[in-house]
Amino acid sequence: MAVALITGASRGIGAVIASTLAEHGYRVVVNHRNSAPQAEDVVRSITAAGGEAVAIKADVTAPEDVAAMVEEVNQRWGGIDVLVHNALTPYAVTSFARLSWEQLGGKLDSELHAAFLTTKAVVPGMIARGRGRLIYLSALLSRRPRDGMITLGTAKAAMDQFVRYVALELAQHGITANIVAPTTVEGATSTELVSPERLRAIAAAIPMQRLARPNEVANTVAFLASDGSGFTTGHYLPVSGGMGIE
């Protein structure tokens, strides 16, 4: 049975991704940093439905935590077949006029550090098995700027390019690396930083006239985790309701 590690999976989009992958037959690792009760709730929900899951505490920006988490999964289930890097590091909502380097540089550092550490930790096992799926949650903001979102949009754009380089290098090993880029998602942690009026305006600007739903993001992730996506790598997949059609 394949094993999927979802970072930042105790609530919001991550929790829905964890439940969706469990429904598709994956053993699921519910990673969290400081939300053990919520993570255990996700595990209980999965196991009650007949799935297998475990909650593991780890700060994905701390090398020792990431190494210990991956080793625990290796000991328990023999390795990680799918990494879904979803953990959201803090960021400031601000204009460029008010932006400090500490805000921008700090977000760039935490975003790339987390993606780098988790990828570095799981890839050796994937190479040894000749197969793996790396999936990274980005944001439509990495290509479509929006007022106030310069820190998140810039950091996600940097991560997107990191993923493309990873995809290029690992393709020969049967490992795919792809980006899922939702527009604003209903109930996501990031919506707490946006006013209700702003959320309504964002929804109105989307051709489908609503925000993305967590299950729509999770279903896209499930496809990229599946055998059916084996020849899809290095791609940026918007979940946007038609926003930013290219």
Rank of each mutant, 00 (worst) to 15 (best):
D160N: 08
R213I: 05
D227M: 13
G12V: 02
S100D: 05
L5P: 13
S190Y: 05
A203C: 06
N86P: 11
V239Y: 08
Y91L: 10
H113F: 15
P182K: 03
Y165A: 10
T61P: 12
A157C: 02
K156S: 05
R131N: 06
A36W: 03
S35F: 03
A55V: 08
L224K: 03
S240N: 06
N86R: 05
R133I: 00
D59T: 02
A39K: 00
H32A: 00
S142E: 10
R144W: 06
M159N: 04
I46P: 02
L170D: 03
S142L: 09
L237T: 11
V28F: 01
D41I: 10
H85T: 02
T151L: 04
Q209S: 11
L104F: 15
I80T: 07
G106N: 07
T89K: 11
K156C: 04
Y91T: 04
T7Y: 05
D41A: 15
V54H: 07
M69F: 14
I17K: 05
G132R: 00
D109G: 14
G14N: 01
I46K: 06
V122H: 09
V29R: 01
P238I: 01
V166T: 06
G230F: 05
T232L: 12
V93K: 13
M1D: 07
L99S: 14
Y165P: 01
G14S: 07
E192Q: 15
I206Y: 14
A48S: 12
T119D: 00
H113N: 12
E64K: 02
L141R: 07
R198G: 14
I13Y: 15
A2V: 02
V84Q: 04
A92C: 07
T47M: 09
T176V: 10
G230S: 12
R144N: 03
T20S: 10
T191C: 15
T183N: 09
E246M: 08
Y136D: 00
G12S: 15
A121R: 01
A39W: 00
F231G: 14
D59Y: 06
H235Q: 07
A15G: 15
V123T: 09
M149Q: 08
A97I: 02
I46S: 06
S95R: 10
V70Y: 05
V84N: 03
L193N: 15
I135R: 01
Y26I: 00
A177Q: 04
A15D: 13
M159G: 04
N215T: 08
P238S: 11
A87P: 06
H173W: 13
S195M: 05
P37V: 02
L199E: 07
P196I: 02
D81Q: 11
E64V: 01
A114L: 00
N178G: 09
L211N: 05
V73Y: 11
L140C: 09
A18W: 00
P90I: 10
P214C: 06
A15Q: 12
V93P: 10
I127V: 13
M208D: 08
I6A: 14
H235C: 09
I245H: 13
L152M: 08
A48T: 03
A121D: 06
L5I: 09
P207Q: 03
P63C: 08
F116I: 01
H113S: 12
R143C: 13
S45L: 01
N219R: 14
L99V: 10
P124K: 09
A181G: 07
L134M: 13
E197V: 11
A121G: 12
G242V: 00
M243F: 15
R11H: 12
D59A: 10
A139C: 12
